[in-house]
Design a protein around this nucleic acid. Structure first.
Lengths: 144, 144
DNA sequence: CACAATTCAATTGTGCACAACTCATTCGGG
DNA sequence: CCCGAATGAGTTGTGCACAATTGAATTGTG
C-alpha cells in the first residue's frame, strides 16, 4: 500500500471543495445582483455598518489592501459605494454606500436561503458545522 | 434592527474563512517543497496513481483545463511531471511523474500533520467535520 | 463511408488572493 | 520640536478559478 497522503482523507481538501461548491451555488444568484462572491462579502459588511475604512473591511474579511483596493474600485465603478479620504486621518479611506448600494440589500435578502436549500443538511448539522468551522478557523489563525 | 443578512451568521463565510486559514497554515510548509497548494493537490492525485489525463485530474479536483493547463506547465517547468500526448487517443494528454516528482512524496509525508497540530480539534471533531463537509459538498454539487 | 456532434486540451479574459514594495501621513521618544 | 518607526492605502507581479472560445481528434449515425 502507498504511504503517500491520500487526497480524500485530507480535511483541507474537504474544506477547499466545500468552499468552492458553496460559492458555485451562490454564483448565479449573485450574478443577478451584478456581484461576485467577494464583492458580496464586502457589501454584507457595509450593510451592517458604514462607513468602514479599507483597514476595517480587511480585518472583518481577512483580506489585505492588495485584494480590496481593486475590488472596491470595481464596486465604485458599479455605483454601489464611494471612497473618500478621512478628514481626521488622511491615511485612511472611508468606504460608504451609495443609495444604489443601500437599496441592493433588499434584493440580497434571499441569497443565503439558496445555500440552505441546496445544503441537504439538517438545522442541527448546519449549526454544528458552523460552530466547528469557527473553532477551527480561530485555532488555525492563532497558529500563524 | 437591520434585516440584512449578517456576515458572521453565514455558513458560506465560515467555509471561506476556514479554507483560507487552512491553506495559510500549509503555505510555509509547501513553500519548503516548492509547491503552491493547488500544485500540492495535483501531486497528491498523481502519487496515488499515474499516469492521469488532464481530464481525470480535473474530475478528481473539480478543476477545468483553464486552471490545470498552466498549472501543469509550471509543474513541468519544476521538473516534477511530464506531459505527453496519449498514443491511443491523441486528444488526451497524460501526465506522469518524473523521478524528482516521485521522490518528493517522501518529503510531503509530514504536511498533513501540520494542519492536525494547528487545528485544535479532537479526532472525533475532525472526523465529524470531514463527514459533514463531504455530505455538504455532494449535496451542493448535485444541486447545480 | 461521410459528416455532424462530441470530447479533450489549450488559450483568452476577468477577477480574487497574497507577497513585496512604495508613498504619504501620523505617532512617539529623545 | 524633530526624526525615525509605524500605519494605511495603493501598485506590481505571480498564481489560481472560471467562463467562453478555439481547434484537433474521435465517435456515432445515417
Amino acid at each position: 500500500m502507498s504511504d503517500a497522503p491520500r487526497l480524500r482523507h485530507q480535511v483541507c481538501f474537504a474544506l477547499y471543495s466545500a468552499s468552492k461548491a458553496a460559492t458555485a451555488v451562490y454564483r448565479p444568484v449573485l450574478e443577478d445582483l451584478g456581484l461576485t462572491y467577494p464583492q458580496y462579502l464586502v457589501m454584507l459588511v457595509l450593510w451592517e455598518k458604514e462607513p468602514r475604512s479599507v483597514r476595517e473591511l480587511g480585518a472583518e474579511l481577512g483580506l489585505d489592501s492588495g485584494t480590496l483596493s481593486p475590488l472596491l474600485k470595481r464596486l465604485e465603478g458599479l455605483g454601489l459605494v464611494e471612497r473618500r479620504r478621512a478628514a481626521e486621518d488622511e491615511r485612511r479611506v472611508d468606504v460608504v454606500l451609495t443609495d444604489a448600494g443601500t437599496a441592493l440589500s433588499a434584493r440580497a435578502q434571499a441569497v443565503p436561503q439558496r445555500l440552505a436549500d441546496a445544503a441537504g443538511l439538517s438545522a442541527d448539522e448546519i449549526e454544528q458545522l458552523h460552530a466547528t468551522l469557527g473553532k477551527l478557523t480561530a485555532a488555525l489563525n492563532s497558529s500563524l
